[in-house]
């Protein structure tokens, strides 16, 4: 076996592409959870985004309009969840799961006439000189714009949560909704905003899948990516920067195991396929064992029902 056939540069490029849909969905869910809401419907919102983005791109011929539509569709679906959990105070875990079921079915229905079509292609960044640099050029300067968007989004979320008043309020709502309420903040409205943002991000992640990573629409194409996104949020201990670590680690191990197989490594493929999940668990254990306080970062009101009773 010749490990020199593994080209770290192109491995990096592949893993970034594989990780981006998960990263996009995860950054949205992080904001939702920071506001104290647990939405397990990420898979449903992603797939709705995948079909909405695909369909609108095909109709308009413009992938960017498609991406916007995907965000819109994800947000709409999320608002159903928001209405139910925030106004009707339904159980968040069950409502989220129902949302997944609903989203998967809805996307399949909407997508019936779009199977077998080709979306307009999404242009890649090509900066003269920079993109042509060896190694750095391919890793840093030659992706499609969505990848930079995803990093910018993580940065933006980090900035918002930690450096702005709005972020402080959002976190306060997630830590103790009753206290936030008595300080005069509109808990329900803030959470609805977070939920819609989460839906938009998940929708965008789905659209990245159907427009860039695979470029096609097929029923059930998210194939569990939403669940991985949820796990990545927990993995990151609700810290935006760690989302990148989690998503890229997961994507990286996935890509690496496929490459190792192509190299002809003598480990059974079934066991190799387990590695992304196992390594995520192991790293999580190390993080939580090493810094006990960090792992207690879960918003205190996560999943709890709020009702303004005055």
């Amino acid at each position: 076996m010749d490990f020199s056939a593994l080209n770290p540069v192109s491995l990096m490029v592949s893993l970034i592409i594989a990780a981006t849909p998960i990263l996009l969905a995860a950054v949205g869910e992080l904001v939702v959870e920071k506001s104290g809401v647990l939405n397990l419907g990420v898979e449903g919102m992603m797939i709705i985004g995948a079909i909405a983005g695909f369909a609108i791109s095909v109709e308009t011929g413009n992938p960017w309009i498609g991406m916007l539509a995907a965000m819109f569709a994800g947000a709409i679906l999320a608002l159903i969840f928001g209405f139910m959990t925030q106004f009707l105070m339904s159980n968040q875990v069950a409502t989220g799961l129902a949302l997944t079921l609903f989203g998967l079915g809805m996307a399949a229905l909407l997508g019936q006439s779009y199977t077998g079509m080709k979306p307009p292609s999404t242009p890649h960044l090509n900066i003269p000189v920079l993109s042509d640099l060896p190694v750095v050029g391919s890793i840093l300067f030659s992706h499609d714009p969505m990848i930079y968007m995803s990093i910018a989004l993580v940065t933006g979320v980090w900035y918002f949560l930690n450096r702005t008043r709005g972020g402080l309020v959002l976190r306060a709502v997630g830590e103790n909704h009753d206290a936030a309420h008595s300080l005069g903040y509109n808990v329900v409205l803030i959470r609805m905003g977070a939920i819609a943002f989460g839906g938009a991000c998940a929708g965008l992640g789905g659209a990245y899948l159907s427009l860039v990573r695979v470029p096609q629409w097929t029923e059930g194409m998210t194939a569990g990516a939403g669940w991985i996104a949820l796990a990545i949020v927990v993995f990151a201990s609700w810290k935006p920067w760690r989302l990148i670590l989690g998503a890229y680690l997961f994507g990286g191990v996935t890509i690496l195991q496929l490459n190792l197989q192509a190299l002809g490594i003598g480990i059974s493929a079934a066991y190799l396929s387990m590695t992304p999940y196992l390594i995520t668990i192991i790293v999580m254990v190390i993080i939580s064992a090493d810094r006990r306080r960090a792992s207690m970062n879960a918003p205190a009101s996560l999943g709890r029902i709020f009702h303004a009773s005055h």
Binding site: S10, S14, R213, V214, Q216, T254, L258, N259, Q261, A262
Partner: peptide
């Protein structure tokens, strides 16, 4: 589809 696409990329890579 996601995994199949990754596998195709890995093979092209090799």
């Amino acid at each position: 589809p996601g995994k199949e696409a990754d596998a195709a990329n890995a093979l092209i890579e090799q």
